[in-house]
Each structure stands twice: as structure tokens, then as C-alpha cells.
């Protein structure tokens, strides 16, 4: 357990190791650590920024969605109104058309009837005259038969 030259040898070794450590060990390791710390810090900052961006984008998307919904609702409303109006118009037009057709039908039928009646009246008058002539051939009494003819004509 004496103090001897080992002491000197060890001190030299100590100095050499410390110098070696200072030159070749500490700087690369410390640089690596510090660089990584910086990287991590940058990454964290970037992620925070991205989070903010995402929040903003989400908000924007939300807003746009709301606007789109509103627009869609308005459009549907308009379409409904328009459809209702169209149906109303179309119905009215249909009604009018129907009325018109019915009216023209009536008029035609009326005209035909009038025409036929006129025809019939004419023929009846002729027939009546013919009948009357026959009767007169037998017994001519114009005075007596005229009221019959008049009655016939009035009945037609």
C-alpha cells in the first residue's frame, strides 16, 4: 500500500483520457444530443402550427358547410314555390281549356239542334201542308182547318 510511481503513471493516463474525451468523445455526443433537441423542438413547434391550421381549416369547412346548407334550403324552397305555382297555373289553364271545350261543345250541339229543328219545322210544315191538302181535297173548309194548322205549327 505504499505510494509509488503508479501514481505518476495514473496521473498521465488521467490527463490523456481527459484530453481524448475532450477532443473526440464529448463534442460529437453533445452535438448529436443538442441537434436532436433542436429537431424535437422544431417538430413540436411545427405540430403546434399544424394543429392551429387544422383548427382553422375545420372552422372554415364548418362555415362553408353551413352556407351551403343554407343555400340548398333556399334553393329547395324556391323550387317548391315554383313548382306549386306551375301546378296552379297549369291547373287553371286546364280548367279554362275544359270550360272552353265544353262551351264550344255546347255551342256546337246547340247550333246543330237549331239547325235540325229548323229542318224539322220546315219538313213538318211541308208535311202539314201536304196532310192539309189531302184533307182539303175531301172537305175544304179553310176556315175550319186553319186553326188546326196553326195549332200544329205552334206545337212544333
Amino acid at each position: 500500500m505504499d505510494i509509488n510511481a503508479t501514481l505518476i503513471g495514473l496521473m498521465i493516463a488521467f490527463v490523456v483520457f481527459v484530453l481524448f474525451c475532450m477532443k473526440f468523445v464529448w463534442p460529437p455526443l453533445n452535438n448529436a444530443i443538442e441537434e436532436r433537441q433542436k429537431k424535437i423542438a422544431d417538430g413540436l413547434a411545427a405540430s403546434e402550427l399544424a394543429e392551429k391550421d387544422l383548427e382553422q381549416a375545420r372552422k372554415q369547412a364548418d362555415d362553408e358547410l353551413k352556407a351551403a346548407k343554407l343555400e340548398a334550403a333556399t334553393l329547395i324552397d324556391q323550387a317548391k314555390k315554383r313548382a306549386a305555382k306551375l301546378v296552379e297555373e297549369e291547373t287553371q289553364r286546364g280548367h279554362a281549356e275544359r270550360e272552353k271545350i265544353i262551351a264550344s261543345g255546347y255551342a256546337e250541339v246547340e247550333a246543330e239542334r237549331n239547325r235540325v229543328r229548323e229542318e224539322l219545322r220546315k219538313q213538318l210544315g211541308v208535311l202539314a201542308i201536304a196532310g192539309a191538302s189531302k184533307i182539303i181535297e175531301r172537305e175544304v173548309d179553310a176556315q175550319k182547318q186553319s186553326d188546326i194548322v196553326e195549332k200544329l205549327v205552334a206545337e212544333l
Partner: peptide, 22 residues
Amino acid sequence: AIVLGSFFVWLFAYVGRKATTG
């Protein structure tokens, strides 16, 4: 002492030389 000290500087220098920042 010298063997162990050398081992220490070799190991740490080796790792330091190959150290990645990733």
C-alpha cells in the same frame, strides 16, 4: 486502469462518431 480507460474512450468515441441526430 489504462485498459478500462481505453475501453471507455473507445466505446464513447465509437458511439460519438456514429451518432445520428435522428
